[in-house]
């Protein structure tokens, strides 16, 4: 199976979907002439032309709304945010227009749109450029939210997102774009709403998504050396969430750690813990622990940033704590 980068996996997904359906177009800052701020759209302008690969001014609120308006009358936009930090300016359109239009119109106007871009912290980008927004987005009925952690999932989920007739949020990661993985050359999609067991184990469930999957894999490797077998549940989709997969895993292991990039308070992990306490109350042998970013704006200094971010060591420690070892 060919091994490609996360970036190319996204690029191939967009290209294939644009070839398949001429209602699909890509719009955002620097997507065309510059070939993408993170080069995800490399080569697409040359292939599809400027009507379908559209550079915008720096106008997040505006072009998010342009996408929604065009989707109301039959197009299928892919809206790229340079990063989700800047999408904050567009949240009115994501929440008040895209997510609610179908309901508010009594079922008359669905919005088949994809909002995508990198989410979460990269390296030393400091407070305004290092934020994980999933809890804000997952909160909204009417949106679907996916957060792939591997090139395979990135391609398969983005293709599903483009084909979905609802608004779908795709959370990527600057730190993921260069990571590599096996991606089949044949056509496939990853259905929205299905978790994937990335490691099988019977000692402790480790539940995560997106970029944190890489952290979780390393933590699982380290724990394996000490004889602790982790059941690594990669949620992949956050709304709808594969609650059955969570429950199945926790009933097997009786212990769980939820790992996420974002802040602790009202994070997506809190929702995961709620599902666990509802459905696995009698199965638990220890309280569920969460590993999150420290409850501070992201600092710049290398050592402080390291201290703020969830990492392998913190994840390993949390798993050991719920195992009551050390």
């Amino acid at each position: 199976m060919p091994v490609i980068t996360f970036r190319d996996a996204l690029n191939h997904a967009i290209r294939e979907e644009m070839q398949r359906d001429d209602r699909v177009f890509l719009m955002g800052e620097e997507v065309a002439v510059y070939q993408g701020a993170y080069k995800v759209s490399k080569g697409l302008l040359q292939e599809f032309g400027e009507m379908r690969i559209v550079d915008t001014p720096i106008t997040e609120l505006g072009f998010a709304g342009v996408g929604v308006g065009s989707a109301m009358v039959g197009l299928r936009p892919i809206i790229e945010f340079m990063t989700w930090n800047f999408a904050l300016l567009a949240l009115d359109q994501v929440v008040n227009s895209a997510a609610k239009m179908l309901y508010m119109s009594g079922g008359q106007f669905n919005i088949p749109i994809v909002f995508r871009g990198p989410n979460g912290a990269a390296l030393q980008l400091a407070a305004q450029h290092s934020q994980a927004w999933e809890s804000w987005l997952v909160h909204i009925p009417g949106l679907k939210v996916v957060a792939p952690g591997t090139p395979y999932d990135a391609k398969g989920l983005l293709k599903s997102a483009v084909r979905d007739d609802n608004p779908v949020i795709v959370l990527e990661g600057e730190m993921l774009y260069n990571t590599k993985g096996e991606v089949p050359s044949e056509e496939y999609v990853v259905p929205i709403g299905e978790a994937d067991l990335k490691r099988e184990g019977d000692h402790c469930s480790l539940i995560t998504w997106g970029k944190s999957v890489l952290v979780a894999l390393q933590a699982a490797d380290q724990l394996a050396k000490e004889g602790i077998r982790v059941d690594l549940v990669d949620l992949r989709s956050l709304r709808p969430m594969d609650v059955a997969a969570i429950v199945k895993s926790v009933r097997k292991t009786n212990r769980a750690v939820v790992l996420e990039e974002g802040w602790e308070v009202c994070g997506v992990g809190a929702q995961v813990v709620d599902y666990i306490q509802r459905d696995c109350f009698d199965d638990l042998d220890a309280p569920v622990l969460r590993v999150t970013q420290a409850d501070v704006p992201m600092p710049y200094a290398k050592n402080l940033e390291r201290a703020a971010k969830p990492d392998v060591a913190k994840t390993v420690a949390a798993v050991k704590r719920v195992m009551y070892v050390e």
């Binding site: 177009f25 009507m51 505006g62 072009f63 709304g65 227009s97 508010m104 119109s105």
Partner: peptide, 30 residues
């Protein structure tokens, strides 16, 4: 809202529907 008359809504956030109109214009041109 009324799909039959291409009435694309009544919107409640002041200013929020103006980008939508631009998007409809974009779709027409597309």
């Amino acid at each position: 809202f009324d799909r039959n008359t291409n009435f694309l809504g009544g919107h409640g956030i002041v200013g929020g529907h103006v980008p939508l109109a631009t998007g409809v214009g974009f779709a027409i041109k597309y």
